[in-house]
Design a protein around this nucleic acid. Structure first.
Length: 565
RNA sequence: GCGGGUGUAACUCAGUGGUAGAGUACCACGUUGCCAACGUGGUUGUCGUGGGUUCGAUCCCCAUCACCCGCUCCA
């Protein structure tokens, strides 16, 4: 639907779902506030997740598709954690991006994505770069060489290519170290990163015609820095967490020792995270402060593939059960190239947002098989991929670059007398993205006749009743004959039962229905003339617009039953 | 970060070098009474923010912030 996003943003503002942060001061890029209805919607999303993960989990039964019974517990950890957490997790290095701009094309590149090779022709020597990877990159560089020296394809041999293939020295400007080391496994056979010996003046940028158009790489820190204690200084530097997951990993032993969880088990957490995104975009989809719903599932390495399959399917179904249509939601396995170096497998759950190109999707959740990377990192220190799997990254002196805690985070199975480091399956969902997806999915415009029988456009949010901010609205048909009083009694009865209820006696009845449609209220109760005689009210369904009569005494149970569906 | 566009009432938008309007919304009263009714009356803006030019700026100029689109990025 055209402009759906604009209409939705407008509706969110108008009816109090979401506002720009600090709006009266002109707003703040990448930050959003939830209004009175938005906070209810988002709470319901988080609550649905928490209920599914923790509250409703039956640890005595084997859920369909699961290998065996398991335990689930929740925690809530601090936003600021020991700085060493982020050094060992890899975020500290990885979230330092170095970017270089091309003065000619105005394009920006991640500096460590630029790879290239020296090319010489007669007395000219140029370091030709590409931002493409794999064989494409090599072909690109070769073609650029021909173009640059004005040669034909059959003259390709006249170019002399530099022999520096592997082991390019890290770029050393501004104390920068290449965060993903150039290892023999790197698929860019024959290409190497730009090193400080390649004077930038000799570098041909990937899309430039002239040589030497790249700026010095500049640092982008994707973690928010803060200071612990009143005095600023490096010793007090800490970071706002860029993910909630580390809270689970560092508390793995605490939970294990204190809660009598039965292995295997999951630890779940819902909470805020912060990433200093370069380009926040698309309403709340990519923001700098956001809320995550993450669960770390600890299991035996041998069973981890089954658990991975179980969780990716279960999480996908969660969205379907709450009303996302399957043709808008895909479960996409990461390609080998996309996989983080520690991950055995990762699948994204992605939704076709209105702002996505046809055929493309926006990520709601990643379900990752993380192996034993996280627990080992916090035992041994920051890990990286070596020839024989993960190994502790060492600095020039041969000691660990970032030391781990040294604490034993292995698990001992009493039954099998086996000690092992559990593997981790991580479903990590974005609460704000998910909330936005539910809103997008719910947004509908349809044609309904008005009082005179003329068709009018109706905006309706077809939210799942469990997610709707308001579950039921109570109206007196008119403001007399005792109707407001009866309606108020029903309203209070519903509120007392813990049901989010609205009361509205303002304006014509049709208008009141439409107001509720627009905010997604699934049911409306109307007290009318017959109520006084029959002790019944009408209940009207948001989507079908059908009405039926129910007894006032049954109202609460009826609504509860509908919400439980 | 680059390029283009936008910024006026709660929302959608019009408008002018002489400090602003429409529709919707909202409120009150009356009438009506089951799907955006009608009548009457009413409320709301530092015209995104800060400078400059000018006798005077919402309008022109500069800067800045935010949003949208494209590129880049999306760890």
């Amino acid at each position: 639907m055209e402009n759906t996003m604009e209409k939705l943003v407008s509706l969110c503002k108008r009816r109090g779902f979401m506002f720009q942060s600090s709006e009266i001061y002109g707003g703040l890029n990448g930050f959003w506030d939830y209004g009175p209805l938005g906070v209810e919607l988002k709470r319901n999303v988080k609550e649905a997740w928490w209920r599914d993960m923790i509250t409703m989990h039956d640890e005595l039964a084997v859920p369909a598709g699961a290998p065996q019974t398991f335990s689930m517990v929740g925690i809530d950890t601090s936003l600021v954690m020991h700085p060493q957490v982020w050094k060992c997790s890899g975020h500290y290095d990885l979230f330092h991006d170095y970017m270089a701009d091309c003065r000619e094309t105005k394009k920006r590149y991640r500096f460590d994505h630029l790879k290239g090779r020296w090319a010489s022709f007669r007395d000219k020597r140029v370091f030709i770069t590409t931002d493409q990877s794999g064989d494409d990159g090599l072909a690109h560089v070769q073609q650029r060489g021909l173009d640059h020296f004005n040669l034909r394809k059959n003259q390709a041999e006249q170019i002399t290519w530099g022999t520096g293939s592997h082991g390019g020295l890290p770029y050393a400007l501004a104390g920068m170290t290449i965060t993903q080391p150039y290892t023999p496994e790197t698929p860019l056979e024959g290409l190497r990163p730009i090193t400080d010996s390649d004077a930038l003046a000799s570098v041909l940028a990937p899309d430039a015609k002239e040589v030497g158009t790249l700026t010095e790489p500049r640092e982008f820190n994707l973690m928010f820095k803060t200071t612990i204690g009143a005095l600023a200084g490096d010793e007090g530097t800490a970071f706002l967490r860029p993910e909630t997951a580390q809270g689970m990993f560092v508390n793995f032993k605490n939970v294990l020792d204190s809660s009598r969880v039965k292995f295997p088990f999951g630890i779940a957490q819902v909470g805020k995270s912060f990433r200093n995104e370069i380009t926040p975009r698309n309403f709340t989809f990519r923001s700098r402060e956001f809320e995550q719903m993450e669960m770390e599932f600890f299991c035996h390495p041998a069973e981890s593939p089954q658990w991975y399959q179980y969780w990716r399917q279960r999480r996908y179904n969660w969205y379907l059960n709450l009303g996302i249509k399957s043709d808008k939601l895909i479960l996409r396995d990461h390609t080998q190239e996309e996989l983080a170096h520690y991950s055995v497998g990762t699948a994204d759950i992605e939704y076709a947002f209105p702002f996505c190109e046809p055929g493309s999707y926006g990520e709601l959740e990643g379900v990752a098989h993380r192996g034993d990377f996280d627990l080992r990192s916090h035992m041994e220190g920051k890990l990286r991929k070596g020839p024989d799997g993960l190994e502790v990254e060492l600095n020039a002196d041969g000691v660990p670059k970032y030391r781990g805690s040294g604490k034993d985070l292995t698990y001992f199975d009493d039954q099998t007398r086996e000690r092992f480091t559990p593997h981790v399956i991580e479903p990590a969902a974005g609460a704000d993205r998910t909330t936005l997806a539910f809103l997008c999915e719910a947004y509908h415009e349809d044609q309904q006749p008005d009082e005179k029988g003329e068709m009018q456009t109706r905006i309706v949010l077809r939210l799942h009743p469990r997610l709707a901010p308001i579950k039921v609205a109570v109206f007196p048909l008119i403001k007399k004959q005792g109707m407001p009083e009866i309606a108020a009694d029903i309203y209070r009865e519903l509120k007392a039962a813990g049901i989010a209820t609205a009361f509205d006696q303002q304006g014509a009845i049709g208008r009141r229905y439409r107001r509720q449609d627009e905010i997604g209220t699934p049911y409306c109760l109307t007290v009318d003339g017959d109520t006084l005689e029959t002790q019944t009210v009408t209940i009207r369904d948001r989507d079908s617009l059908e009405q039926r009569r129910i007894k006032i005494s049954d109202v609460v149970n009826e609504i509860l039953a509908l919400l439980r569906k």
